[in-house]
Protein backbone atom coordinates (compact mmCIF):
# COMPACT_ATOMS: atom_id res chain seq x y z
CA UNK A 1 0.00 0.00 0.00
CA UNK A 2 1.18 3.50 -0.80
CA UNK A 3 0.27 6.25 1.64
CA UNK A 4 0.88 9.91 0.98
CA UNK A 5 0.36 12.10 4.01
CA UNK A 6 0.10 15.86 3.60
CA UNK A 7 2.70 15.77 0.89
CA UNK A 8 3.93 19.18 -0.21
CA UNK A 9 6.65 20.18 -2.62
CA UNK A 10 7.76 23.76 -3.08
CA UNK A 11 10.28 25.00 -5.60
CA UNK A 12 11.43 28.30 -4.14
CA UNK A 13 8.09 29.98 -3.51
CA UNK A 14 6.10 28.03 -6.07
CA UNK A 15 4.06 25.16 -4.68
CA UNK A 16 4.06 22.27 -7.10
CA UNK A 17 2.29 19.73 -4.89
CA UNK A 18 0.04 21.13 -2.19
CA UNK A 19 -0.84 19.09 0.88
CA UNK A 20 -1.63 15.90 -1.03
CA UNK A 21 -3.02 13.01 1.02
CA UNK A 22 -3.81 9.78 -0.72
CA UNK A 23 -4.03 6.04 -0.06
CA UNK A 24 -3.38 3.69 -2.90
CA UNK A 25 -4.35 0.19 -1.92
CA UNK A 26 -2.48 -2.97 -2.64
CA UNK A 27 -3.50 -4.35 -6.02
CA UNK A 28 -5.22 -1.17 -7.05
CA UNK A 29 -4.88 0.38 -10.49
CA UNK A 30 -4.81 4.05 -9.68
CA UNK A 31 -4.85 6.88 -12.21
CA UNK A 32 -3.45 10.28 -11.36
CA UNK A 33 -4.89 12.76 -13.80
CA UNK A 34 -4.62 16.48 -14.28
CA UNK A 35 -3.62 19.18 -16.74
CA UNK A 36 -0.02 20.10 -17.56
CA UNK A 37 1.79 21.34 -14.50
CA UNK A 38 -0.75 19.86 -12.08
CA UNK A 39 2.01 18.17 -10.10
CA UNK A 40 1.69 14.54 -11.21
CA UNK A 41 5.30 14.03 -12.17
CA UNK A 42 6.51 15.82 -9.06
CA UNK A 43 4.39 13.45 -6.98
CA UNK A 44 5.85 10.40 -8.69
CA UNK A 45 9.37 11.78 -8.36
CA UNK A 46 8.83 12.25 -4.65
CA UNK A 47 7.55 8.69 -4.39
CA UNK A 48 10.77 7.51 -5.99
CA UNK A 49 12.85 9.88 -3.79
CA UNK A 50 14.11 11.72 -6.85
CA UNK A 51 12.62 14.87 -5.39
CA UNK A 52 12.53 15.55 -1.69
CA UNK A 53 9.17 16.54 -0.15
CA UNK A 54 9.16 19.96 1.45
CA UNK A 55 6.86 18.44 4.05
CA UNK A 56 4.69 15.38 4.51
CA UNK A 57 5.38 11.68 4.47
CA UNK A 58 5.48 8.80 2.03
CA UNK A 59 4.87 5.35 3.46
CA UNK A 60 5.14 2.27 1.28
CA UNK A 61 4.15 -1.11 2.73
CA UNK A 62 4.36 0.38 6.20
CA UNK A 63 7.87 1.76 5.76
CA UNK A 64 8.98 5.35 5.30
CA UNK A 65 10.32 5.85 1.80
CA UNK A 66 13.78 7.38 1.96
CA UNK A 67 16.55 7.77 -0.55
CA UNK A 68 18.63 5.05 1.03
CA UNK A 69 15.91 2.38 1.15
CA UNK A 70 17.15 -0.39 -1.17
CA UNK A 71 14.58 -2.91 0.06
CA UNK A 72 11.67 -0.64 -0.93
CA UNK A 73 13.24 0.42 -4.21
CA UNK A 74 13.61 -3.23 -5.19
CA UNK A 75 9.80 -3.51 -5.15
CA UNK A 76 9.14 -0.56 -7.44
CA UNK A 77 9.34 -0.24 -11.20
CA UNK A 78 9.36 3.24 -12.70
CA UNK A 79 8.59 4.46 -16.19
CA UNK A 80 9.59 8.12 -15.99
CA UNK A 81 7.97 10.78 -18.15
CA UNK A 82 11.25 11.66 -19.84
CA UNK A 83 13.37 9.01 -21.51
CA UNK A 84 16.40 8.36 -19.34
CA UNK A 85 18.00 5.42 -21.08
CA UNK A 86 21.74 5.38 -21.53
CA UNK A 87 21.95 6.55 -25.14
CA UNK A 88 25.40 5.10 -25.68
CA UNK A 89 24.26 1.60 -24.76
CA UNK A 90 22.06 -0.81 -26.69
CA UNK A 91 18.61 -1.87 -25.45
CA UNK A 92 20.08 -5.18 -24.37
CA UNK A 93 22.79 -3.42 -22.39
CA UNK A 94 20.32 -0.99 -20.85
CA UNK A 95 18.22 -3.92 -19.64
CA UNK A 96 21.35 -5.74 -18.52
CA UNK A 97 22.46 -2.71 -16.51
CA UNK A 98 19.07 -2.54 -14.85
CA UNK A 99 19.08 -6.26 -14.09
CA UNK A 100 22.52 -6.04 -12.55
CA UNK A 101 21.58 -3.01 -10.46
CA UNK A 102 18.65 -5.02 -9.14
CA UNK A 103 20.88 -7.99 -8.42
CA UNK A 104 19.19 -10.44 -10.79
CA UNK A 105 21.37 -13.55 -11.28
CA UNK A 106 23.01 -13.86 -14.70
CA UNK A 107 20.97 -16.71 -16.15
CA UNK A 108 17.62 -15.30 -15.07
CA UNK A 109 18.68 -11.88 -16.29
CA UNK A 110 19.52 -13.18 -19.77
CA UNK A 111 16.19 -14.97 -20.06
CA UNK A 112 14.24 -12.00 -18.82
CA UNK A 113 15.98 -9.68 -21.28
CA UNK A 114 15.08 -11.95 -24.20
CA UNK A 115 11.52 -12.27 -23.00
CA UNK A 116 11.06 -8.52 -22.69
CA UNK A 117 12.84 -7.66 -25.94
CA UNK A 118 10.46 -10.07 -27.61
CA UNK A 119 7.49 -8.52 -25.89
CA UNK A 120 8.34 -4.98 -27.01
CA UNK A 121 9.27 -6.34 -30.45
CA UNK A 122 12.81 -5.05 -30.47
CA UNK A 123 14.75 -8.33 -30.73
CA UNK A 124 15.83 -7.34 -34.22
CA UNK A 125 17.43 -4.12 -33.05
CA UNK A 126 18.56 -5.13 -29.60
CA UNK A 127 22.22 -4.50 -30.35
CA UNK A 128 22.05 -1.05 -31.91
CA UNK A 129 22.74 1.91 -29.67
CA UNK A 130 19.61 3.54 -28.30
CA UNK A 131 20.57 7.03 -29.50
CA UNK A 132 19.53 6.07 -33.03
CA UNK A 133 16.07 4.83 -32.05
CA UNK A 134 12.76 6.53 -32.72
CA UNK A 135 10.91 8.06 -29.77
CA UNK A 136 8.38 5.24 -29.55
CA UNK A 137 11.09 2.59 -29.71
CA UNK A 138 12.96 4.24 -26.86
CA UNK A 139 9.78 4.31 -24.84
CA UNK A 140 9.28 0.61 -25.41
CA UNK A 141 12.75 -0.03 -24.03
CA UNK A 142 11.86 2.20 -21.07
CA UNK A 143 8.78 0.10 -20.33
CA UNK A 144 10.68 -3.16 -20.72
CA UNK A 145 13.31 -1.86 -18.32
CA UNK A 146 10.75 -1.03 -15.63
CA UNK A 147 9.43 -4.59 -15.81
CA UNK A 148 12.86 -6.28 -15.70
CA UNK A 149 12.87 -6.97 -11.97
CA UNK A 150 9.18 -7.95 -11.72
CA UNK A 151 8.26 -5.10 -9.36
CA UNK A 152 5.21 -5.27 -7.09
CA UNK A 153 4.52 -1.61 -7.56
CA UNK A 154 4.57 0.08 -10.94
CA UNK A 155 4.81 3.83 -11.28
CA UNK A 156 3.96 4.80 -14.84
CA UNK A 157 4.31 8.46 -15.78
CA UNK A 158 2.66 8.85 -19.18
CA UNK A 159 4.06 5.50 -20.28
CA UNK A 160 2.26 5.26 -23.60
CA UNK A 161 2.92 8.76 -24.91
CA UNK A 162 4.04 8.54 -28.52
CA UNK A 163 3.32 4.85 -28.92
CA UNK A 164 1.44 3.60 -31.95
CA UNK A 165 -2.11 2.31 -31.26
CA UNK A 166 -1.16 -1.37 -31.51
CA UNK A 167 1.74 -1.06 -29.12
CA UNK A 168 -0.36 0.99 -26.76
CA UNK A 169 -3.06 -1.71 -26.64
CA UNK A 170 -0.39 -4.30 -26.03
CA UNK A 171 1.04 -2.35 -23.12
CA UNK A 172 -2.49 -1.92 -21.75
CA UNK A 173 -3.07 -5.64 -21.90
CA UNK A 174 0.19 -6.32 -20.16
CA UNK A 175 -0.25 -3.88 -17.30
CA UNK A 176 -3.80 -5.01 -16.84
CA UNK A 177 -2.58 -8.58 -16.58
CA UNK A 178 0.13 -7.58 -14.11
CA UNK A 179 -2.49 -5.76 -12.09
CA UNK A 180 -4.83 -8.75 -11.99
CA UNK A 181 -1.89 -10.75 -10.69
CA UNK A 182 -1.77 -8.41 -7.73
CA UNK A 183 0.62 -5.64 -8.71
CA UNK A 184 -0.21 -2.13 -7.63
CA UNK A 185 -0.14 0.38 -10.46
CA UNK A 186 0.01 4.15 -10.34
CA UNK A 187 -0.53 5.65 -13.79
CA UNK A 188 -0.54 9.20 -15.01
CA UNK A 189 -1.86 9.90 -18.47
CA UNK A 190 -3.46 12.52 -20.63
CA UNK A 191 -5.28 9.84 -22.60
CA UNK A 192 -8.51 9.74 -20.67
CA UNK A 193 -9.76 6.69 -22.56
CA UNK A 194 -6.64 4.95 -21.27
CA UNK A 195 -7.46 5.88 -17.69
CA UNK A 196 -11.07 4.83 -18.23
CA UNK A 197 -10.02 1.49 -19.67
CA UNK A 198 -7.51 0.65 -16.98
CA UNK A 199 -8.04 2.40 -13.68
CA UNK A 200 -10.10 1.18 -10.72
CA UNK A 201 -9.88 4.62 -9.23
CA UNK A 202 -8.68 7.99 -10.38
CA UNK A 203 -7.55 11.15 -8.63
CA UNK A 204 -7.74 14.45 -10.37
CA UNK A 205 -5.07 17.00 -9.59
CA UNK A 206 -5.12 20.66 -10.43
CA UNK A 207 -2.50 23.22 -9.42
CA UNK A 208 -0.91 20.81 -6.97
CA UNK A 209 -4.14 19.85 -5.22
CA UNK A 210 -6.23 16.76 -5.36
CA UNK A 211 -9.63 18.05 -6.50
CA UNK A 212 -11.53 14.82 -7.24
CA UNK A 213 -11.17 11.23 -6.19
CA UNK A 214 -13.24 8.17 -7.01
CA UNK A 215 -13.92 5.44 -9.54
CA UNK A 216 -14.42 6.69 -13.11
CA UNK A 217 -18.13 5.81 -12.71
CA UNK A 218 -18.46 7.83 -9.51
CA UNK A 219 -16.81 10.84 -11.09
CA UNK A 220 -19.14 10.66 -14.07
CA UNK A 221 -22.20 10.38 -11.84
CA UNK A 222 -21.03 13.29 -9.71
CA UNK A 223 -20.64 15.49 -12.76
CA UNK A 224 -23.71 14.12 -14.53
CA UNK A 225 -23.75 10.89 -16.50
CA UNK A 226 -25.31 12.56 -19.58
CA UNK A 227 -24.03 15.49 -21.50
CA UNK A 228 -25.71 17.77 -24.00
CA UNK A 229 -23.21 19.39 -26.31
CA UNK A 230 -23.95 22.61 -28.09
CA UNK A 231 -21.83 23.75 -31.00
CA UNK A 232 -21.86 27.48 -31.03
CA UNK A 233 -19.80 29.04 -33.80
CA UNK A 234 -17.17 26.31 -33.67
CA UNK A 235 -17.03 26.28 -29.89
CA UNK A 236 -18.41 23.23 -28.14
CA UNK A 237 -19.96 23.51 -24.69
CA UNK A 238 -21.14 20.65 -22.54
CA UNK A 239 -24.09 20.69 -20.14
CA UNK A 240 -24.37 17.80 -17.71
CA UNK A 241 -27.55 16.04 -16.59
CA UNK A 242 -28.34 13.34 -14.05
CA UNK A 243 -30.60 11.44 -16.48
CA UNK A 244 -31.14 11.05 -20.20
CA UNK A 245 -34.64 12.49 -19.80
CA UNK A 246 -33.33 15.68 -18.21
CA UNK A 247 -30.94 16.03 -21.10
CA UNK A 248 -33.68 15.55 -23.65
CA UNK A 249 -35.87 18.07 -21.85
CA UNK A 250 -33.06 20.60 -22.00
CA UNK A 251 -32.66 20.01 -25.74
CA UNK A 252 -36.36 20.49 -26.31
CA UNK A 253 -36.33 23.67 -24.31
CA UNK A 254 -33.45 24.98 -26.43
CA UNK A 255 -35.49 24.15 -29.52
CA UNK A 256 -38.53 26.02 -28.18
CA UNK A 257 -36.42 29.02 -27.36
CA UNK A 258 -35.47 29.12 -31.02
CA UNK A 259 -31.80 28.08 -30.76
CA UNK A 260 -30.54 26.76 -34.04
CA UNK A 261 -27.03 25.61 -33.00
CA UNK A 262 -26.42 21.88 -33.49
CA UNK A 263 -26.94 19.93 -30.26
CA UNK A 264 -26.33 16.32 -29.30
CA UNK A 265 -26.90 14.10 -26.29
CA UNK A 266 -24.59 11.30 -25.20
CA UNK A 267 -23.19 9.47 -22.17
CA UNK A 268 -20.49 11.35 -20.28
CA UNK A 269 -16.89 10.23 -20.75
CA UNK A 270 -14.14 10.66 -18.21
CA UNK A 271 -12.69 13.23 -20.58
CA UNK A 272 -15.79 15.41 -20.18
CA UNK A 273 -15.43 15.25 -16.41
CA UNK A 274 -11.79 16.18 -16.70
CA UNK A 275 -12.48 19.18 -18.92
CA UNK A 276 -15.44 20.25 -16.83
CA UNK A 277 -13.46 20.25 -13.61
CA UNK A 278 -10.18 21.65 -14.81
CA UNK A 279 -11.70 24.31 -17.03
CA UNK A 280 -13.83 25.98 -14.41
CA UNK A 281 -12.53 27.01 -11.00
CA UNK A 282 -14.43 25.22 -8.18
CA UNK A 283 -16.50 28.29 -7.32
CA UNK A 284 -17.62 28.68 -10.92
CA UNK A 285 -18.77 25.06 -11.07
CA UNK A 286 -21.36 25.79 -8.41
CA UNK A 287 -22.71 28.88 -10.17
CA UNK A 288 -22.78 27.07 -13.50
CA UNK A 289 -24.94 24.39 -12.00
CA UNK A 290 -27.19 27.05 -10.45
CA UNK A 291 -27.85 28.77 -13.78
CA UNK A 292 -28.55 25.44 -15.38
CA UNK A 293 -31.04 24.49 -12.69
CA UNK A 294 -32.73 27.87 -13.02
CA UNK A 295 -33.06 27.37 -16.74
CA UNK A 296 -34.54 23.94 -16.22
CA UNK A 297 -37.15 25.33 -13.83
CA UNK A 298 -38.24 28.22 -16.01
Amino acid sequence: MIVLEHLTKKFDKFTSVDNLSLHIHKGEFFGLLGPNGAGKTTTIRMLMTLARPTSGRIIIDGQDMTRNAPALKAEIGLVPQHINLDNELTPRENLDLHGRLFGIPTKERRERIEELLHFVELEGRADEIVRKFSGGMKRRVLIARALMHRPHILLLDEPTIGLDPMTRRKIWELVRKLNTNGQTVLLTTHYLEEAEALCNRVGLMNKGRLVELGTPEELKIRTGPFVVEIDKGGERRGHFFPTREAGLAFMQQLHHEGHTDPVSLRATHLEDVFIHITEAPPSAIGSLQATREEKQKS
Partner: peptide, 15 residues
Amino acid sequence: YDKTFEEYLTAPISM
Protein backbone atom coordinates in the same frame (compact mmCIF):
# COMPACT_ATOMS: atom_id res chain seq x y z
CA TYR B 1 20.46 16.41 -19.11
CA ASP B 2 20.28 12.70 -19.90
CA LYS B 3 18.79 12.04 -16.46
CA THR B 4 20.48 8.64 -16.50
CA PHE B 5 21.70 9.29 -12.97
CA GLU B 6 18.12 8.55 -11.92
CA GLU B 7 18.67 4.94 -12.91
CA TYR B 8 21.13 4.67 -10.02
CA LEU B 9 18.99 6.64 -7.60
CA THR B 10 15.93 4.48 -8.22
CA ALA B 11 17.85 1.19 -8.04
CA PRO B 12 18.10 -0.80 -4.82
CA ILE B 13 21.73 0.12 -4.27
CA SER B 14 22.96 2.33 -1.48
CA MET B 15 24.23 5.86 -1.91
